[in-house]
């Protein structure tokens, strides 16, 4: 998926593999972010996916966070393990497909009511828009299905990665609210 994330390969000719990326990461960022293990990244955007070694469980399984490096760093906790991350992400893709279907139905309804969009009209412009699920921001309810993660969130174990970021705390609030519903 060209607009989703990609996993860092072990190593590449250009030196963009997981080892180099993590070396650079530790060089570029200070604690607590330098201790994270980066394994994936959004295509062409500076959003990263990483595990949190400091929160590994008794089997050594680490939770996953989504990191925004554009301004002051913060991370959103998105899964209790890499397995759960893939599971949640795949559900968000299902939702993406559903969203596209709903959107095409909506466009078809408008077309039935008002006829086809005039060439170059505003509706014709909109018709080219493909709606996207804004992961992870728009799927707090999917994240909330991960019970182990929710336990960590309730215990405030990720707070050290969200210092000073109101939006992140607010989003975690949405995740927790989605658990109780």
């Amino acid at each position: 998926m060209s607009e989703g994330f990609f996993l860092f390969p072990f190593e590449t000719q250009e030196g963009r593999g997981i080892v180099t990326v993590n070396e650079e990461w530790r060089w570029d960022w200070s604690d607590p972010f330098r201790g994270l293990l980066v394994f994936a990244k959004e295509q062409a955007l500076a959003y990263y996916f990483a595990t949190v070694p400091g929160l590994a469980d008794e089997q050594g399984i680490q939770p996953v966070v989504w990191i925004d490096t554009y301004e002051d760093l913060y991370a959103l906790p998105i899964a209790s393990s890499i397995d759960r991350f893939f599971d949640t992400y795949s559900h968000s893709l299902e939702r993406q497909v559903e969203l596209i279907r709903e959107d095409s139905e909506f466009k078809a309804r408008l077309e039935t009511e008002s006829g086809p969009p005039a060439p170059d009209s505003l509706r014709a412009l909109w018709s080219k828009d493909i709606p996207r699920i804004n992961f992870p921001w728009e799927v707090p309810d999917l994240i909330a299905r991960d019970e182990s993660l929710v336990r960590l969130l309730r215990a405030g174990r990720f707070d050290f990665l969200m210092d000073g970021c109101e939006d992140a705390h607010e989003w975690v609030g949405k995740v927790l609210a989605a658990v109780s519903t």
């Binding site: 607009e3 295509q43 062409a44 955007l45 959003y47 925004d68 554009y70 913060y74 996207r132 804004n134 921001w137 728009e138 970021c165 939006d167 992140a168 989003w171």
Partner: peptide, 28 residues
């Protein structure tokens, strides 16, 4: 933060539209 992420997604799509050859060369 949420809106910024959404707009960056759109920026990426816009850039590909504005510079298709460059986007390809850069393997965006």
């Amino acid at each position: 933060k949420d809106e910024k992420k959404k707009l960056r997604d759109r920026a990426r799509a816009n850039f590909r539209q504005f510079h298709p050859e460059l986007a390809e060369a850069m393997k965006l």
